[in-house]
Amino acid sequence: MPIGLTGLMLRVGLTGGIGSGKSAVASRLRELGAVLVDADRVAREVVAPGTDGLAEVVATFSERVLGPDGALDRAALGAVVFGDETARRRLEAITHPRVRVRTAELVAAAAPDAIVVNDVPLLVEVGLAPTYHLVVVVQTAVPVRLARLARDRGMSRAEAERRIAAQADDERRRAVADVLVTNDGSLAELHEQVDALWRERLLPYAENLRRRRAVSPPRTGLTGPDPTWPQQYARLAARIRHALAPAEPRVDHIGPTAVPGLAAPDVIDIQLTVETLADADGPLADRLVDAGFPRRPGQWWDRAGSAGGERVAKRLHGSADPGRPVRLHLRQVDAPTWRCALLLRDHLRAAPDQRVGYPAPGREPTAAPATGGCPTARDPGCEEEHRRAERWAERTGWRP
């Protein structure tokens, strides 16, 4: 059976710093119908009494990490590893592989069309974000977290600050977050956010995956410029690369959202380079579907160079995520339209004063920005930009 045609469950990564209230979000998602895989619970399971995991922990850190009953004394172990990066990495080398294996077993046991939420405190630290269709980060102000840790876990302020410092900071978590859930208020306010996330994004996303259906980009006007567009692209590209590993394809951010300071429709255009269009079919297409990027139906092509240029075929995928419209263009390496998309992007980045035909923020365009980075027959301003870009490429020695 081709990859991606079975088990298209929605995989959601959930994370947040210690004391953020991540467990409350996980609990609410489970109440709404998600299958919850709790990494902390799995981590306890793999070092339970009688396991080889516990035996290796004891062999590494001595019996001082055991309680009187022979079970792991997590407080004693925490005192050894927190604040000692070398010790923490030795512990992670023991537990993380076992947690991954057990997590895979639990996910495999879920229904093929389930929404599986993996609650992972160290999701950022161990680089798991690209393995999920969506990453949800619970964000809470540090003073609120310190107060919760003192109230709910009896931690001293010094210990709580040490635990927080040992984890990724808020900036690193935001970089991988497709969704930020703020938990500085009441439980009712938190539930309101989670319920909306479930209703408006997770359920439709799961349904789109089941139907292998890409979300149509909205027919709206210009927005932005949005400084988070490059970061959003980076998350999408990481998922694409993970889906196609061990191959290392070229993935590029193209189109208007790839140019800082340019107003554009709120759609991320991505170019995936293939050796031949035949390579864009079969297993590669199935892997993209499994990663949340179904193929758009129909035949797709671009005009090369100008309105009268030749038609060049491509494959077009989109995103199943209703919260992030995407156009994923699969173009053959060295095709004129492949080169065009990269050339226009790089020229517009290098020469912002020459964006004739492209709209400035707050101003209506004289012509619509080029879809996917190439001029169209209805886009005379972009055709002129193409001519300027070619002169710039010749003058500077630009290569794609």
Rank of each mutant, 00 (worst) to 15 (best):
I3N: 01
G4N: 00
G7C: 01
R11C: 06
L14Q: 14
I18A: 07
G19V: 03
K22I: 11
S23Y: 11
A34V: 11
V37M: 09
A43R: 09
D52A: 14
G53P: 12
V57N: 11
F61P: 14
A71S: 15
D73Q: 04
D73W: 03
A76N: 02
G78F: 02
V81Y: 03
E85A: 15
A87L: 10
A93R: 13
T103D: 01
E105M: 13
L106W: 10
L106Y: 03
A108R: 15
A111T: 14
V116T: 10
V117N: 03
N118V: 15
P121V: 12
P121E: 13
L122Q: 12
L123K: 14
G127R: 14
L128H: 02
A129C: 03
T131V: 10
Y132G: 05
V136K: 00
V136A: 00
V138D: 08
Q139Y: 00
T140A: 04
R145W: 01
L149K: 04
A150I: 08
A160L: 07
A160M: 08
I164R: 06
E171G: 06
R172W: 03
R173L: 06
R174G: 06
R174K: 13
V179N: 04
L180A: 15
N183H: 15
G185V: 08
H191F: 00
H191C: 08
V194S: 01
D195Y: 07
R199A: 13
L203D: 00
L203R: 12
L209A: 03
R210N: 02
R212I: 06
P217A: 06
P217C: 04
G221F: 07
L222M: 08
L222Q: 06
D226W: 10
P230K: 05
Q232D: 14
L236A: 05
A237W: 09
A238G: 12
I240Q: 05
I240S: 06
H242Y: 14
L244V: 11
A245K: 06
A247P: 05
P249V: 01
V251D: 02
I254H: 00
G255M: 06
A263P: 10
A264C: 09
P265L: 00
P265K: 02
V274R: 05
T276R: 15
L284R: 08
D286W: 11
V289I: 09
G292N: 00
F293M: 03
R303W: 01
R303S: 01
G305C: 07
S306H: 15
G309K: 07
E310S: 14
R315M: 09
S319F: 03
S319I: 02
A320M: 11
D321Y: 10
P322A: 00
R324I: 11
R327P: 01
L328K: 02
H329S: 06
V333I: 09
P336G: 04
A341L: 03
R345D: 07
D346P: 13
L348T: 11
A351S: 14
P352E: 04
V356R: 15
E364D: 09
T366D: 15
A367Y: 13
A368E: 13
P369A: 01
A370F: 00
D379K: 00
C382Q: 14
E383A: 13
R388A: 15
E390P: 03
R391W: 12
R395T: 12
T396F: 07
